[in-house]
Simulated assay, not measured.
Amino acid sequence: MTKVVNHERTSPVTDTGRCLDTVQLEGLERSFRSWAEASKRPDTKLSRRRILLIFLLIRYTGARLNEVLNLDPLTEIDFKSHIVHLKKGTDETDRAYRVVEVSEALSSEIKRLLDVQQLKQTPGGVFRIDPGHVRRKFYERAEACGIPRELGAPDAIRRSRAVELIQGNMPLPVVQKILGHSTPNLAASYLEFSDEEIHNAVRFFVDRENQRKTSARNAFFGKINQIQKGDIQAIVEIVALGGHRISAVITNHSLARLGLKRGTLVMAEVKAPWVMIYKGDEEPRTTAENIFCGSVHRISNGKITTEVVVRISDSMELCSVITEKGRKMLDIHENDTVWIAFNASTVVLHVD
């Protein structure tokens, strides 16, 4: 039977109707990335990468569009400490910065994208772009992945980041300081955080967020798309960040106790011994509800058991532990096309 892990939520109720959830934000990010690399013309690709950089900064710092356009990334991003210094005004004497931390992975990517001589020599600065042009490109990317254009606006993405932080249990006053807001209400004004406490809270969230993307093997982070209730148990369908659909079976009691509903963000995990592997070009005939096609990325051979890592997308790998005798019988080698399958009853749901 599927296990369910519940971690206590402390975030306030937030109206998410006017913003994107994490899965939609990830879809929008993929849209920007593929668009930025699609052009074969060097000048067009360079221009698109500038827009991608603006999106990534708004997406992960919650910055205002004008703050990013006024940013000098070569001097106001600390790539060693992974910190972005943001300010509202254009006045060079205005040193009223606010500091926002980003993940090491994002910091490295921004540095790599900026490490282009033509970009460094851009007249007026890397981000000196017409705001109207930036907004139009944001609208285009949103519509390209099925998102209403108004939800692809820079301010909507900034608002979505705020909701994402709050739903991730980051203290509301910390979120306010990150986004450069004044204290939202009198009750919150009694709760003060030192700079060190803010740093620790943000670093914890950024590390956890990055871990979801880079190190969670056999784990799908996404949102509940559909729930089918039976007499005793329910089938829960999750749409993961990469678009994969995973089915899990839990009891109706767990469903009610956790308050799971369509749109709830969850982590779906399956242990490697429960993951079955099939070789062949055609989808296998199996009763397993979750089936994915991929290529063998790595094999770690043992005397008794062997670990087979299968890449089902650029950002997702699944691991299967089988006997070495079974691997030889199936004649599985690296780069082979294989099918990965696991039952819905073996999926563990984790809820923040």
Rank of each mutant, 00 (worst) to 15 (best):
K3W: 05
V4H: 06
H7E: 13
S11W: 14
D15Y: 04
T16G: 09
R18S: 12
R18I: 01
L20Q: 10
L20E: 12
D21Y: 01
L25I: 08
L25R: 15
E29Y: 02
S31C: 09
R33C: 01
E37I: 13
R41W: 08
P42W: 11
D43I: 02
D43M: 11
L46A: 12
L46W: 03
S47V: 00
I51G: 03
L52Y: 09
F55T: 09
A63T: 12
L65H: 04
N66F: 01
E67Q: 14
E67A: 04
P73K: 05
L74H: 10
T75P: 00
F79S: 03
H82M: 01
I83F: 03
V84P: 06
V84H: 12
V84G: 09
L86N: 05
T93Q: 09
T93P: 00
A96Q: 09
V100Y: 11
S107D: 01
S108T: 15
I110V: 15
L113K: 02
L119Q: 05
Q121L: 08
T122H: 13
G124Q: 07
G124E: 10
G124A: 09
F127I: 13
D130T: 03
P131E: 08
G132K: 14
H133Q: 07
K137G: 00
Y139R: 15
E140T: 15
E140D: 13
A142S: 09
A142G: 06
E143A: 14
C145D: 07
I147T: 10
E150D: 14
E150S: 09
A153N: 11
I157H: 03
R158T: 13
R161P: 00
A162R: 13
E164M: 10
P173K: 03
K177G: 00
K177A: 12
K177S: 10
I178A: 09
H181W: 14
L186P: 00
A188K: 00
A188Y: 03
S189R: 10
Y190R: 09
Y190D: 01
D195T: 06
E196N: 10
E197L: 01
V202R: 15
V202M: 14
V202S: 11
F205Y: 15
D207S: 12
T214Y: 02
T214D: 02
S215D: 14
A216Y: 08
A219P: 00
K223N: 13
N225D: 14
D231Y: 06
E237F: 07
I238S: 04
V239M: 06
L241D: 13
H244D: 13
R245G: 00
A248R: 05
I250R: 11
N252G: 10
H253C: 02
L255N: 10
L258W: 13
L258G: 12
L260C: 06
L260S: 04
K261D: 12
K261C: 07
L265T: 13
M267I: 02
M276P: 00
I277D: 03
I277Y: 06
Y278M: 12
Y278R: 08
K279Q: 12
K279R: 15
P284Y: 06
R285M: 08
E289Q: 15
N290M: 09
G294W: 12
T306D: 04
V308L: 10
V309M: 07
V310M: 05
T323P: 01
E324K: 15
L330R: 11
D331Q: 14
I332R: 15
E334S: 08
D336R: 12
F342N: 06
N343L: 10
H350P: 01
H350C: 03
